[in-house]
């Protein structure tokens, strides 16, 4: 099986661990990945004003790249890229007036009408690989690891692009159960991490992040899994500061879901780039005897 893949900017640098672990996992699952040519930034956030079409051009160009390569599906990993591409795709599919304006504006491109389906890797694993197959492929079960699945906003909202309904976390739950881990539901799982508000004074984003981390720790989770580099920044990379400021009492190592998948599939830890996570992330996996080369 071969898939077309859109990485996005952050995955090529600061969230390289989200990507390398996914690519290694897909290789282990026997899936060929083709990164689309000449992709550009997705725009990070979807434009919410009705008259702002210029910011849809970026994401639509990516969809056109996929269409040109003959793809009917485009797989993404980053939640924010997923959301922006999927929402722009809905406009092109369902709004003939806006579609026409955007197509005419991009007169150097082929016409596009939403032919490519934007798919998040979690959905792809569910629909095209299947949890049973993943269970069979596990080499190092994540036994005894208590993981809290954290989706963040952009995988689930709004409803027309959500990978599953608001408040339901079944894709990550079934993934981690297939990998042998214990899934820990927690009360603040559907709360926002603070997102880009981290640029707008730290207080807001710090208190939202602290609410999530405290709730996960109280529920008995040892680790948090995410699919978004901005969630990982607010909830993972900021933990030292949150602890220092007394906003949280204990740390909860954060992972990308792809890193946990890769480790369970027996991928070498070096391919998961744990150097980009907090040190505690690799230590926890070592303590649980989850690393092949340990």
């Amino acid at each position: 099986m071969k898939i077309s893949y859109y990485p996005g900017c952050t995955l090529k640098t600061k969230a390289g661990n989200l990507e390398t672990a996914a690519l290694a996992s897909l290789l282990a699952l026997g899936i060929e990945v083709e990164e689309i040519d000449r992709w550009n930034c997705c725009g990070a956030v979807f434009s919410l004003t009705a008259d702002d079409l210029i910011h849809q051009v970026g994401p639509v160009r990516n969809l056109i790249r996929a269409k040109e390569q003959g793809a009917n599906k485009l797989v993404t990993l980053c939640s924010m890229c997923y959301n922006t591409l999927a929402r722009a795709n809905l406009i092109m599919k369902n709004d003939p007036v806006k579609r026409d304006t955007i197509n005419r504006f991009m007169d150097d491109e082929i016409d596009y009408a939403g032919e490519v389906e934007v798919v998040h890797l979690l959905t792809f694993l569910d629909q095209e690989v299947g949890w049973e197959r993943i269970r069979e492929m596990v080499k190092v079960p994540l036994e005894g690891l208590r993981i809290a699945p954290y989706y963040g906003c952009t995988l689930q909202r709004p409803a027309d692009v959500g990978i599953e309904p608001f408040g339901s976390f079944s894709l990550m739950t079934r993934l981690f159960e297939s990998l042998g881990a214990t899934v820990m539901p927690f009360a603040a799982a559907d709360k926002c991490c603070g997102s880009y508000q981290i640029l707008n004074g730290e207080d807001g984003a710090q208190s939202t992040a602290a609410t999530i981390l405290k709730s996960a720790a109280e529920a008995g989770a040892e680790a948090l899994a995410t699919s978004c580099p901005l969630c990982e920044y607010n909830l993972g990379k900021q933990q030292g500061k949150l602890l220092e400021n007394g906003l949280i009492g204990t740390t909860v190592p954060t992972y990308y879901f792809t890193q946990l998948l890769a480790i369970a599939l027996g991928v070498a830890p070096e391919s998961c780039r744990f150097d980009l996570n907090d040190g505690a992330a690799l230590d926890l996996l070592k303590n649980k005897n989850c690393l092949v080369a340990a």
Partner: peptide
């Protein structure tokens, strides 16, 4: 006005999203 150390560590999506919204 954003401190240089902050910009170095922030993921690109945070900067693009924040600048687009604010």
């Amino acid at each position: 006005a954003l401190p240089a150390e902050r910009i170095v560590e922030l993921p690109q999506i945070a900067l693009v999203a924040g600048f687009r919204k604010l």
